[in-house]
């Protein structure tokens, strides 16, 4: 899986270029997220525009990143952008949409950090 990483005005945008994030591809995504956190970012946006399916391993990658942001960098947040309907559904069913805020675009997600810039 290709994962693009971009810095955008104090926000790191991670874009997995895969239709599926499952037990095979989730470790790579987790690695990319933790790597960005290691480098000191507080504000993470994951662009899920390509992703039509995500499983518990993929959600686990978000959880690892979320925890790392809170413990290692003393704060920060992980926000999700460009979600496809089945991914939105899954997050809503298990109430994860209350933890990982979702936005219709990367710009909207990045802008959301402006008010709460660390």
């Amino acid at each position: 899986m290709t994962i693009d990483v971009a810095r955008l005005d104090g926000v790191t945008v991670i874009t997995p270029r895969s239709e599926r994030i499952d037990f095979e591809s989730a470790p790579e995504l987790r690695g990319a997220l933790l790597d960005a956190i290691e480098k000191g970012t507080h504000n993470l946006v994951v662009d899920l525009g390509c992703v039509g399916f995500i499983d518990s391993s993929g959600l686990g990658a978000f959880v690892s990143a979320f925890k790392a942001l809170k413990t290692r960098n003393g704060g920060g947040d992980l926000r999700l952008a460009n979600l496809q309907p089945p991914v939105v559904e899954l997050l809503e069913i298990i109430r994860l949409n209350r933890v990982f805020l979702t936005y219709p675009s990367v710009d909207a997600a990045a802008d959301s950090f402006l008010a709460t810039r660390h």
Binding site: I54, S57, E89, L90, I93
Partner: peptide, 9 residues
């Protein structure tokens, strides 16, 4: 639709 078994949930 979401396939909860397929998604490991």
């Amino acid at each position: 639709w979401v396939d909860l078994a397929g998604a490991g949930c």
